[in-house]
Design a binder for these strands. Structure first.
Lengths: 185, 185
DNA sequence: TAATTATGTCACTTATTTGAGACATATTGC
DNA sequence: GCAATATGTCTCAAATAAGTGACATAATTA
């Protein structure tokens, strides 16, 4: 993929994250190219949106899978996945929206499958930890999953808004997530 | 305020929450009125947006202030405020966005002031609890504040998506928030 | 019932956004 | 330097959205 194309996708992700109706003019501007150039790479709005989805889903899956495999201890796997997601920043936020908003039409089947794979790995760890009595038994799996995502977003937002330093933001996220689900290390 | 006006504002809040560029056509449809009628109540898009802001800010402030005052115990105050915010549902989500997105231009000064009042009450409680060593000392106030908001949204979302029953959704939110900040009751 | 008010329908204008053609200008690799 | 490729500028047409006037119809109430 050319640098320009990558630039445009990055700009689009940044813009769409704030406003999924962002004009192509604005995206082109953010990417530092003319609108005409944007149209040369992407037939229309939909094609740009699809490229963003696929690209970001790929990156997030890759980053989180890599994080998952980096350690054998299940708790460290979860922690690494949390950190990996936070490091993805805007990319992660964008992907999260795809999943929770129907207005970003359905995700490509294959990509979704891959992602479910990462998700299912994560769910398996949590389920096991909960069965071992190391996670608060009151909480349900869907709740914990949603909470995980929202703490990641809080961390990204906290850092971006300048409220909190990068490393603190990651540390706080992990501390809070552990506490929130009553995880005993 | 007439029923129709209230209906339109409710519809607009619902639509804007998902997409701040929602067309007036869509909002009118959601409210069950014609676009022409919407324009009779609101001069233009901006006036509708402003009305939504003021109305929702009012409601949320009222609900949370009332919750704050319902009990004397500081921890119960915080819990009640959390529940009140969750009960506001879409209204709360909308207000939260106003505060975190600059694209929803600045909030009316007076309203903001009132709200800061609620916010400062909340911050004071948390600060005191932390000084008393009842909240994890590592975490900063801005982090705890952001976390509070994001757990509320997670709870609203969890309920709306059908993943979790209304009461569980509130219970989980409180359990998780307490754990996340290491609150000792 | 008559008058008033609220709302709907249709038509029209204007502004914005999108997409693409034609051609000029840079930039790159050979 | 030349050819190939990438990008910019200008232009225009189509689509969509916003705002408004004129008038019909429904609902409310004196």
């Amino acid at each position: 993929m050319t640098d320009t194309k990558i630039e445009i996708i990055a700009a689009a992700v940044k813009c769409f994250r704030l406003n999924e109706s962002a004009t192509l003019e604005k995206i082109a501007q953010e990417a530092g190219v003319s609108r005409r150039t944007l149209h040369r790479y992407f037939k229309d709005r939909q094609e740009l949106l699809d490229s963003c989805k696929n690209e970001m889903l790929d990156r997030c899956n890759k980053a989180m899978t890599e994080a998952y495999e980096r350690d054998n201890d299940p708790i460290k796997k979860v922690r690494n996945m949390l950190f990996a997601a936070i490091e993805q920043g805007a990319n992660y936020s964008f992907v999260k929206r795809i999943y929770e908003r129907s207005s970003f039409a359905e995700v490509d089947r294959n990509k979704e499958f891959e992602s479910d794979n990462v998700k299912s790995k994560w769910l398996t760890i949590i389920k096991n930890l909960q069965q071992e009595g190391r996670i608060n038994a009151e909480l349900t799996l869907p709740w914990i999953f949603n909470l995980f995502g929202s703490i990641i977003e809080t961390s990204i937002y906290a850092f971006e808004s300048g409220d909190i330093a990068r490393n603190d933001s990651k540390k706080f996220a992990w501390t809070s997530f552990k506490g929130a689900i009553g995880l005993k290390e």
